[in-house]
Design a protein around this nucleic acid. Sequence first.
DNA 1: CTCCCTCGAGTTCT
DNA 2: CTCGAGGGAG
Length: 835
Amino acid sequence: MSNVLPDAVRDRAAELTVQLERYNHQYYVLDAPTVPDAEYDRLFRELQMLEADYPALACGSSPTCRIGGAPLPEFETVTHRVPMLSLGNAFSDMQLAGFDARHAELIAFDERISRDLAAASVSYATEPKFDGLAVSLLYHDGVLVQAATRGDGASGENVTANIRTVRSVPLRLAAANVPAVLEVRGEVLMLKRDFERLNDTQRSNGDKPFANPRNAAAGSLRQLDSRITARRRLSFFAYAIARVEGADWPASHDGEMDWLAALGFPVVAPELRPVVQGAAGLAQYYESVLASRAALPFEIDGVVYKVNSRRLQERLGFVSRAPRWAIAHKFPAEEALTTVEAIEEQVGRTGAITPVARLAPVFVGGVTVTNATLHNEDEARRKDVRVGDTVIVRRAGDVIPEVVAVVLDKRPLRPTPGNDLFSDSSEPVYPAYRLPSACPVCGSHIVREEGEAIARCAGGLVCKAQRVQAIQHFAARRMMDIDGLGERYVENLVEFDYVKSVADLYALTLDDLLAMKQRLDAQENAATAESVTQSSVPLVEGGLFAASAPGKALPKSGKVASKWAENLLAAIAASKRPPLARFLFALGIRHVGESTGKTLADWLGTLDNVRRAPRAVLAVLPDIGGVVAESIADFFAEPQNECVIDALLAAGVQPADEHAPRAQLREKLLAANLYARLNVPRLTEVRAQQLAAQQDDLATLAATPRVDVIKLTLPAEVVNALADWLDVAGNRAVLQRIADYCRDILQATPQAEVPPLNGAIAGKTFVLTGTLPTLSREQAKALIEAAGGKVSGSVSKKTHYVVAGAEAGSKLEKALALGVTVLDEVALQQLLGGV
DNA sequence: CTCCCTCGAGTTCT
DNA sequence: CTCGAGGGAG
């Protein structure tokens, strides 16, 4: 080794670098090697040795970097100077639409663009929509200095070391006049043939094969050890320029692509990215790519149209974070045929029984599908899905597999005895689907209320499935947030009766957990020893232990097990002071979700106030009506639930009171409001007001004898109904109880809590859609609510603002259609800032 | 009583 | 994300 670097060595190294990069480019980008592999290897090793002898030579852009380097502890985050936008997908669901329908939508798109540009005919650049991962490559003076993933669009992960191993990414631009700064956007993907090869390797090594090239590419790019990435044969295609300094930026998209190719970047072949005219050209391109899809060396999930002229692109500009001049046109969801092996029922947290079709595994839309929900009995019967049927399955636009239809021709028919020629009768082997009458888990009755689509197991917490899920719900992140209490652990805890209700979680000891672990081990060993087809009774989906491969369910015994147990106990202990709203949500009261939990906490302030609240009082709160109020009151009146809550409190769980009851509660608790919610026949809103005008004290009315009640100045049928109601046993007590409750709760000094409200936001309704560059959805929601705004989930006429981020979908479209103001994150921040 | 808007609940796979 | 149903306005 030497510290001095002779000029001759430096020159030779530079020469080798240029040669190797040229061969690389010829091999990987142009797909036309000019030298034998052995020659390449010889030069490569020579450069490696020079670099080993003279460390001063080593730099990030040497071809020797392509074999990867030492693993990183983690990826650092880099902020994109120019945000990485995603494309809108303005084409509606066209799964079933034919050529003409697609055509019609293209015409509409083209017309919109032409209209906005006031142009007769628009030139579009086209390209396939790669199914890979978007990355941004930054070059300074022609040298690759940084590569980052898309992340949330505003910032991503620094994957420079990994990208350097991608052979077709130029490390140093060879062209004559390279720009001082160049930021290139493109897609990292795995070619189909490289994917096959990788999976062969995975299989022969006993590793799990990847589901699809996209996953393989993602998994490879996100390796902290770039030497692994180097072995994985990733490819890269450039498709956009984000930034140019020190050179002319081509005036059209196809010009950009040609320039990138000249600079040495791999871009898709010119015949796959023609410039076309108008809707007809787009339609023709779409059809031709769709037809040749299977023959392409890489996976695509659609095509992209871009207004070719950059001048026109600028005129069209952006809608929030998505360009208006580029659009993705996705291919219809892939469909596949498979057979129904069984139809089973799942039991949800609320006891809802959902029929699920168990399918022969079928690869569709990039994953293997084995289950598809049939939603409910009516749906299953409408589609007439039966065991043994051949069905068409697809992964609709998003993710969730769906049974599209049954292929009736293939339905198995019962053979007709003694008739060889016509051996099949027209009678199907399996009857139409019917929901069972007993819960598959606990055997309780299944009840389907009149007019309801959903059938429910009547077992309540007797039903193990419901118990397991109630506990899971309780521990989930948006509720008590008990880390490490995953599905499998909960199932085991319930199965072994360590936990019967959520309160038992707080009584768990280290010994309990370790003992449970031992029993599990014993059971496992027994199972493996027998090795018989032991079919443990399926509890929830997948069966209780079906998913727990040996050693997977819980950590191995010894130190690891006790560490796991300690962590879990710590997480449980840490969950003891949840905000009241989340605690209420966690209890799993029917009809009480995140929002209603917040309403209750907001208006009543303390757990005790919520627990004791009579039905009529609950029903005066916003968005709480008779059904929800009853559900809440019933929940707290149920002795079992009372015990659980008391046990939780005794164990030290202490929901943080929001505050005293809201000052505005006074207005809500007016006698007229309460009278109207007693469910007294004929006592309408108006009559309740008249009644309150004569008797505004509930306690007094409760004590009024019948003879005096009918003297009230109200229509005879109303006073009679009221008198009858009061005569029903217990109703006078109900009235008295409401009166007492109101008196008590109003005594608790309602602070005049008027938080500093933001005029621009208070009382306004917001809808969030897409991914915001820096704020998470939760954060944005919290900020808006803190300023007095409301955040809701769907766009309507009443929505004041839609805050759109990247990948905004139908909500953004709807906002535009309804003329609702669309904000991006910056605009939202301004609104939030300007009080 | 009839819309229309929201909220809750359920769902698949990596 | 989608569906069903509750709440509330008209």
